[in-house]
Design a protein around this nucleic acid. Structure first.
Length: 757
DNA sequence: AGGGTTAGAACTTAGATCCC
DNA sequence: GGGATCTAAGTTCTAACCCT
């Protein structure tokens, strides 16, 4: 089968090099790295046989899953690129889903763990290999009408695996102008019975007939067993739950379906009976087959022959008649069939928008594309009907639709709108249709309303300026941007959570959304990041960095590298950059070194062991030769300072010198700043600064004598500048608490300075 | 597979009114 | 003034029953 042909393509992965053409989308590694890994894998595959087998199982399983998923998208439009690429490849490969076997086994003899591959198997699963084996056996061992008929049976052709496959096959047959004939099995989940039959109707409809018949009050006495079994279940719903209708094959002709029905019937009955039932020897069995019994098959059943009662109602003339506005009685006479048969054909051809398949539904189905075209052209009703007339659609004329005439509102047209879009309002329906097109152009998150409108204008004619915005508001309840934002919310939230620990979360989200790339110029990346930030602000009112916590309040807060380094340094003040790096997660050492440096600058006192100022005092006391009284006072001053201010990065020596100076001053022990400067080794400027700071800390009322806050000399000079003619005595009198000689000295100094000027 | 008959559901139509 | 909506009267269609 084509599945195995496809599966055989795994060979290159196992023992050859992969063409670089197929390696265009490697995500995070380059081709060289990929090849290194592939070599390793191939080495392993060639040395360990059991590993190889497991690997094959895995690959086949993977292919099977992908095909199953993709098969449901065969006819869909606007599917993601990833899916459509696979789909395209499968189509190019001429792959048919009809040939996927339900029982997919790997073609090596010794692959273990088969059960791991097939876990969806049920007791009713038809295994195509067993079917094939039985067919060969039957043809070889029996020579009867059935074995002759089975000779050309192709078990792979038209095999139905999923509902989607059934739809696909049936559609192809209808497009070919034929009626699909199904071969079905109704599986009894309770007792394990299987009823095999065929029908030219859909499985749903066939099942409905079974149920109706079974629950009819006058069920005839000689019906097939299944009717009585169904009737035992109390209600149709219960019966439907118990009996599972499964389509096994779909054929374009009834004859093929009948032969397949016979084959399956014999196969199913022999499966549980070693001696085996055979249709040729056991007429009793026909009770189960039902249809075969009624048809009185006596050995003639030419392939492809139709039931002579078959009425031909071809799809295209039927559609034409509907678009002419024919009513049910007219269709009946036109095709010489009953109304019921007309509806059966509607269902068979898929003429319906709501799966009702009555006349209205069929009309709606056929008119839908015409109405949508009118909407896209922006036609008003008058022009719409004119257009229809030009296109040869007679149905509106047939229903005597009179334009714009009071009292005639085009009920038929509104009914169609109602049927198709659940609204009878022309405007609403138009908006719904265009809203679908609007959604289809939202292909990227940063598309603007202007871009979207321009894109739509290529195939939709808006009636007036601003209609685009109005359609968005009417159809979505929000404006275009709001709808667009809504559509991308899940993906942005996913990206935010995925990148919650990344330093540049905005940029990560922007790249994830595809609005910029890793290696784009800075300005483009910047714009994209800003777009993400404004998106998050607009929709959540927060910064992107906060989004993960906002979505999952339990998440730990994001910690920047700086924050992490600082935290580590707080706990380990003496750590070196390399040590810090080892405790981070593979970050740049240069950056870490920078943060460590920064931390040390801000926290130097944590690194330097704090000096004890009190240790310094005895040394200085000795040098200066002052008494213990001064020592006690010095310590007291230091304590006062520490209680009020932080030592910070002040030089401790200067502080101690200041305390000493103050203590000496208070105790009237004269110590010059010069001698202190020499003794301590700190400049007199620093000492003066410290003295000033110390003075701010102490309670001045406790001391009778304290140094001035401002030095005497500037005070004297300032006064003399303002009063140049002041006499010496006046100045001495003014500073009478000070030493007279000093004042006199300053006075003379000022005069000399003035004279020099 | 096909069809006929029937009651009543579901639909269409035309007139009137509402709404913007 | 035109489209939307409501209503009553009249028409068509469907489901369920029956049959070969």
């Amino acid at each position: 089968s084509s599945f195995y042909k496809l599966a055989s393509k795994i060979k290159p992965i196992i023992d050859s090099k992969i063409s670089h053409n197929f390696l265009g989308n490697l995500n995070k590694i380059d081709i060289a790295e990929f090849e290194d890994w592939l070599k390793l894998l191939q080495k392993k595959l060639h040395t360990d046989e059991s590993y190889l087998n497991h690997f094959k199982c895995f690959l086949l399983w993977l292919i099977k899953i992908v095909i199953k998923l993709i098969s449901e998208m065969w006819d869909m439009k606007n599917i993601p690129i990833f899916h459509s690429t696979i789909l395209k490849d499968l189509k190019n490969y001429n792959f048919s889903f009809a040939t996927i076997e339900e029982d997919i086994r790997v073609e090596t003899n010794d692959i273990p763990a088969k059960n791991n591959i097939i876990n969806s198997e049920t007791r009713f699963t038809l295994k195509i290999k067993k079917l094939q084996g039985f067919l060969t056996y039957y043809i070889e061992n029996y020579n009867n009408i059935y074995s002759k008929r089975f000779k050309n049976l192709d078990l792979n052709r038209s095999k139905v695996v999923t509902h989607q496959v059934y739809i696909e096959l049936a559609r192809k047959i209808i497009q070919n102008g034929q009626i699909p004939c199904i071969v079905y099995e109704i599986c009894d989940d309770k007792k394990g019975w299987i009823r095999i039959g065929w029908s030219s109707h859909s499985p749903d409809e066939r099942m409905k007939w079974y149920l109706n018949k079974s629950f009819s009050p006058s069920l005839p006495p000689d019906m097939a067993n299944i009717y009585y079994e169904m009737a035992k279940n109390g209600s149709k719903r219960q019966a439907q739950a118990r009996f599972d209708m499964r389509v096994r094959y779909v054929f374009p002709t009834k004859g093929e379906a009948l032969i397949m029905e016979e084959f399956l019937t014999i196969f199913r009955n022999r499966a549980n009976n070693p001696s085996g039932y055979d249709l040729t020897i056991n007429n009793e069995y026909n009770k189960i087959v039902g249809e075969l019994f009624k048809r009185h098959i006596g050995g003639r059943f030419p392939s492809g022959s139709l039931n002579p009662k078959w009425r031909d109602v071809p799809p295209i003339p039927l559609a034409d008649a509907i678009l002419e506005g024919s009513e049910m009685n007219e269709l009946e006479s036109l095709f010489s069939v009953s109304a019921k048969t007309i509806r059966r054909r509607f269902r068979a051809y898929g003429y319906g928008v709501k799966d009702i398949y009555d006349l209205k539904d069929a009309r709606a189905f056929l008119l839908k594309p015409i109405i949508i075209e009118g909407f896209k052209k922006g036609l008003n009703q008058k022009n719409f009907f004119k257009n229809c007339r030009n296109e040869g659609i007679g149905i509106f004329d047939r229903f005597k639709f009179v334009l714009n005439k009071f009292n005639d509102r085009g009920a038929f047209f509104r009914r169609m709108l109602d049927q198709i879009w659940d609204t009878s309002k022309h405007k609403e329906a138009r908006h719904l249709v265009i809203a679908d097109y609007i959604l289809s152009v939202i292909t990227r998150p940063d598309i603007t309303p202007g871009d979207a409108e321009a894109e739509l204008k290529k195939f939709i004619k808006f009636k007036y300026r601003g209609e685009f915005a109005q359609i968005c508001n009417n159809a979505f309840g929000i404006d275009f941007r709001g709808k667009r934002d809504d559509l991308f919310k899940p993906i942005i939230e996913k990206l935010a959570l995925e990148n919650k620990n990344e330093p540049k979360i905005q940029l990560r989200i922007a790249i994830g959304l595809g609005i910029c790339k890793e290696n784009d110029p800075v300005d483009i990346r910047d714009r994209a990041s800003h777009w993400v930030a404004s998106y998050v602000k607009r929709n959540y009112g927060i910064r992107p960095r906060m989004l993960p916590q906002y979505l999952h309040p339990g998440l730990s807060e994001y910690s920047s590298l700086k924050h992490q380094v600082f935290k580590y340094m707080d706990d380990h003040p003496k750590a070196k950059p390399m040590e810090v790096k080892e405790n981070m997660e593979s970050m740049n050492i240069a950056t870490i070194r920078g943060y460590v440096k920064l931390w040390r600058k801000e926290n130097w006192e944590k690194i330097k062991a704090p000096l004890n100022p009190y240790d310094l005092i005895p040394k200085y006391i000795e040098k200066l030769g002052v008494d213990k009284e001064i020592k006690v006072l010095t310590i007291k001053f230091l304590e006062t300072f520490q209680s009020r201010k932080k030592i910070g990065n002040r030089n401790l020596k200067g502080l101690v010198a200041a305390a000493l100076y103050l203590a000496c001053f208070v105790k009237e022990k004269s110590v010059s700043k010069m001698s202190l400067e020499k003794c301590v080794g700190v400049s007199s400027v620093t000492i003066r600064k410290r003295i000033k700071e110390l003075m701010d800390c102490i309670d001045k009322n406790n001391f009778s004598k304290l140094p001035r806050d401002v030095p005497l000399k500037p005070q004297v000079f300032k006064y003399l500048n303002n009063h140049p003619s002041a006499r010496v005595n006046e100045v001495i009198n003014l500073f009478k608490e000070e030493n007279e000689d000093t004042i006199l000295r300053y006075y003379q100094e000022w005069r000399i300075k003035r004279r020099l000027k």
